[in-house]
Design a protein around this nucleic acid. Structure first.
Lengths: 341, 341
DNA sequence: TTGTAAGCGTTATCAT
DNA sequence: ATGATAACGCTTACAA
């Protein structure tokens, strides 16, 4: 049961630990014969290097840390999937932490990851986060950080994002082109960049098409229970405005809440009110009416972010210069029933 | 930039490393004054113990490994959520690995986790897995293992499950009581225990209510794309049997595929065919008709599994006897539109 | 109450 | 081509 270590192999073969270590790692200054003897014996004794010892010695853990606001969320599980596959491929393990949208937790978790000596950190910021010293602390410790999805422009590191402003602009422009005249926006809270950007895209699209911006058509969905936010605000909106003919929602989940309310209130979608979502969750294909939305490539975001992070880890280790990249992944409009009239 | 270590604190205070170490860990044989001096200096120098060194020395990593078949899956993300919260609470980190339902990968990943010296392993077996030597290897190395959801009865370790057979029995009994006479079952593949158990529950319910079992009413959904399995088999079933009045599906996703086909084929749910799912995904509340299903407590499963694992880790470390537990979490029927007539 | 020194299992430097 | 030895940063008998 006791794990085999180098010294056991050395003893079994009557040679030194050094030789065993070198042979195992394929150093050129070991004779072919001893090398194969060592390999064979290692196999026979089922030798597995002790990662803790290796880590201590080499000061790297082949592990990356990931902090996301929530796991039970289709978008983040897609991202996670991309991260896990890329990490697997490149021989890294992944430690997952959930910030639950709490800044304090996020901060604590960064500290934890640094203490664990992860080789790099992938993070999508919590909605609360508006101070970035914890992120900068990691960067200063030479631990590469890549931000994805919910990023902060001010932090100097690589980022993988979509162009939220453009995507929102495209969505609203699409609605306008379809002939919708009075378009409400169900936005997210004020802090996260993507919430801001989607709002700005909405506004710009109106502007560019000479539709006056009306702040009473903006509904705030910031209770972190997007579905109910959508439902409740849809109800409110119907009471306040009887002439809105389309809604651009910050998230599919909000959109689904809206649809649920409108269905219950017997308001026809899209005849009376069209609904446009954001993210293209699987769910949006199964509700009725099927939801028009923006496809947000979660898997790709995760995969690219992990890939860039691991590149930077390698570069940092080899003392090569690293240049940060801002990768903007394309989004597309997925047209479905909820806007087709 | 350079991390503070014990020796730095010792040097700054003109005392020994041992004293610093002991002071930091609150040993009783250190004077109050030196203790507070050390604490203060550690704080000031922003000391963080090097986990690799601690791990090597203490031979524990305060990390648990989790292997799940897939992350992009509402049930597993709920489980993950439960695991992450419990681990966080008890001071453990979590390494996540995805087996993608592949036995070979699962085997490799267990080896990886053992090499990383995780303190314990949580695993839901892949559908392919029918050999358990890799699991037993971990157990033999004194690394506690807890199986959840997709378990193997033969493996001697703690398990957290639901009673799939009973849940399925309840579901089908419910349908029978509602007056449905010809009930089809869309089952999962042959290997995983939960697929077998749900099938057995279905069969037993028919038997107990004197409804003859008809194997032509069993449709196999084993392509790992449950949604399309449901869709395709629903189509097939409608062609083969014009008198089926209810379907019990192994999973909500399969059920949603079924609903999608029936809706397209203008077959009324539940008037012509009722549909019963399994898992209670969020999605099942937003499709139409809303899906009757079995609530499977994913969060609780994860939380309990992690809790038991950490208990066993602690017991093992203290050389206390550990007794394995089989925890069976209750499921409930969530009645919605798809079966109410 | 404090300190010395050994040891955890590797890797890497420098001799031989 | 091989090996002795130090070092990674920490914990812990044991000694003082």
């Amino acid at each position: 049961m006791n794990d085999t270590k180098l010294i056991d192999i050395a003893a079994a073969l009557g040679i030194s630990v050094t030789t065993v270590s070198k042979a195992l790692k394929g150093y050129s200054d070991i004779s072919k014969t001893t090398r194969s003897k060592v390999l064979e014996m290692a196999e026979e004794m089922n030798y597995r290097p002790n990662s803790n010892a290796v880590n201590l010695r080499t000061n790297e853990t082949k592990t990356i840390g990931v902090i996301i606001p929530a796991t039970v969320h289709h978008f983040f599980s897609s991202v996670l999937n991309g991260i896990l596959e890329e990490a697997e491929k490149r021989g890294y393990l992944v430690i997952i932490l959930q910030s639950s949208e709490k800044y304090e937790l996020e901060k604590k978790q960064i500290a934890l990851l640094l203490q664990k000596r992860v080789d790099g950190i992938l993070i999508s910021l919590s909605n609360e986060t508006d101070d970035f010293t914890h992120i900068n602390a990691a960067i200063k410790k030479n631990t590469p950080v890549v931000l994805f999805d919910k990023i902060a422009k001010m932090v100097d590191c690589s980022k993988v994002i979509i162009n939220d402003k453009k995507a929102a602009y495209d969505a609203v422009t699409y609605l306008i082109k379809k002939g919708y005249k009075k378009i409400a926006h169900f936005r997210g809270s004020l802090v996260p960049q993507n919430s801001i950007d989607r709002f700005l895209g909405y506004k710009k699209a109106l502007e560019d098409h000479n539709i006056p911006y009306d702040s009473s058509l903006i509904y705030m969905c910031d209770h972190n229970t997007d579905f109910e936010d959508g439902y409740g605000n849809a109800k409110l909106m119907v009471e306040q405005h009887n002439d809105v003919d389309a809604i651009f929602a910050i998230t599919d989940l909000v959109a689904i809440g809206i649809i649920k309310y409108l269905n219950e209130a017997q308001i026809k979608i899209p005849e009376q009110i069209a609904v446009f979502g954001f993210s293209n969750w699987f769910m949006s294909t199964v509700i009725s009416p099927k939801l028009t939305t923006i496809d947000q490539p979660g898997y790709d975001i995760g995969q690219r972010a992990a890939s860039i992070l691991i590149d930077e880890i390698t570069q940092t280790k080899e003392h090569l210069p690293v240049t940060h990249q801002i990768i903007e992944l394309p989004t597309t409009i997925i047209e479905r029933e909820s806007t087709i009239r």
